[in-house]
Design a binder for these strands. Structure first.
Lengths: 159, 159
DNA sequence: TATTGTTATACTCTATAACTATA
DNA sequence: TATAGTTATAGAGTATAACAATA
C-alpha cells in the first residue's frame, strides 16, 4: 500500500490512506484523557488537589520518606518538574521536606497527619468521580481498560 | 531504594481508603497518553506535524470546506484555539481559508494538493507509529481499547 | 442581538539546561 | 566527578473574555 501519486486525482480516498481519526488509539486516548482530567478537576473543586498533586501525595502517603528523585521517577516526570508539586503540597501542610542523616543533599518527603487525612478525603472524591464518570461501563470493562492502558505503559516505560 | 523507614507505623491502608494509583483509570490514562504522544512526535520527526495539527488536517481532508467553528467542535476545542492550528497548516501550504459566498464571516477550509499528499504521508507515519508502539498487543486488544476509550468519550462529549 | 474568526491573556503540565550544595 | 534539589526558561496545549466584521 504505497502512496502512488498520479498527477490526476479523482478522489483522495481512492489512492491515499484514509485518515479516519476515530480509528486511531492516540486520538481516542487524547480525547478521553481531556474529558477525564476535566471531570477530575470539577469533582475535586476549585480549591481541590490537581491531578498531579493528588498522584504525588498518594505516593508520599504510600511510601513515606521517599526522596524527590525517587518520586519523580515513579511519576515518570523530571526532578525539576516535581519541585512545584512538592512546594504546593508543603504549602498546604500536607507533607514536609525532612533532612536525611547521612546525606544532606536529599529531602525525605514525609506526609503530615493533615496530609494523610487530605489524601484519604481526596481518594474518596477521586473514586467517586471515576465511579460516576464510568458508571455506564461494567466493572469488567473498567478492569479491562485499566489493564490495556497498563500494557501501553509497560511498553513506553521500559527503562 | 525507596523507603519505608517506619515499618511499625500503622499502615495508612488500615484506617484510610487505599490510594493505590495503579487502580485509577485516570492515572493510567494520563501515563499512557504521555507515552503515546511522545512516541507520535518522535515518529513524525522534528519538522513533522504535531498531533493536533495532524488531527485537524485529517478532518479538513475528510471534510473539505468545513468551517473553523465546525472543525473546532469536531475536535472538541474552542474556536480560539483552532486559529493557531489553521495558521500552522496554512503556513505549510496544506490548506487555504476560502471565502464563502453568502456569509462573509466564515472561512471554508480547503485542503491543497500538497496538504492532501502530506496528510497521506503523515497517515502512514502515524499508522506505523501506532502499529509499532502497540505491537505487543493483539488486534483484538487494540480494538477493545479503542472501543472502551470511545465509551468514555461518549459520556464526556454528550453535548 | 447573535455568530465567526481573531487577539490577548493566563493557566496547566512538561522538558532542558545550568546552578548550588553536597557527596 | 557525580548526584539531589533548585531555578530559569521555553514549549505544548488549553480556556476565557473581549473585539471587529458580518449576519
Amino acid at each position: 500500500m504505497a502512496g502512488r501519486q498520479n498527477p490526476r486525482r479523482p478522489d483522495p480516498e481512492d489512492q491515499f490512506p484514509m485518515p479516519d481519526l476515530e480509528a486511531y488509539i492516540g486520538y481516542n486516548l487524547k480525547r478521553a484523557y481531556v474529558i477525564l482530567q476535566k471531570d477530575f478537576r470539577e469533582a475535586l473543586g476549585a480549591d481541590g488537589l490537581a491531578p498531579r498533586d493528588f498522584s504525588a501525595l498518594a505516593l508520599v502517603v504510600q511510601f513515606p520518606n521517599i526522596t524527590q528523585s525517587e518520586l519523580a521517577r515513579m511519576l515518570g516526570i523530571e526532578r525539576s518538574g516535581l519541585v512545584a508539586i512538592v512546594d504546593e503540597l508543603e504549602g498546604r501542610g500536607y507533607l514536609s521536606r525532612a533532612a536525611v542523616p547521612g546525606d544532606r543533599r536529599v529531602h525525605a518527603l514525609v506526609p503530615t497527619p493533615t496530609g494523610i487525612a487530605a489524601c484519604a478525603r481526596a481518594t474518596e472524591q477521586v473514586k467517586a468521580h471515576e465511579e460516576k464518570l464510568l458508571s455506564h461501563m461494567t466493572q469488567d470493562e473498567i478492569q479491562m481498560l485499566g489493564s490495556l492502558l497498563r500494557k501501553i505503559r509497560a511498553r513506553g516505560e521500559e527503562t
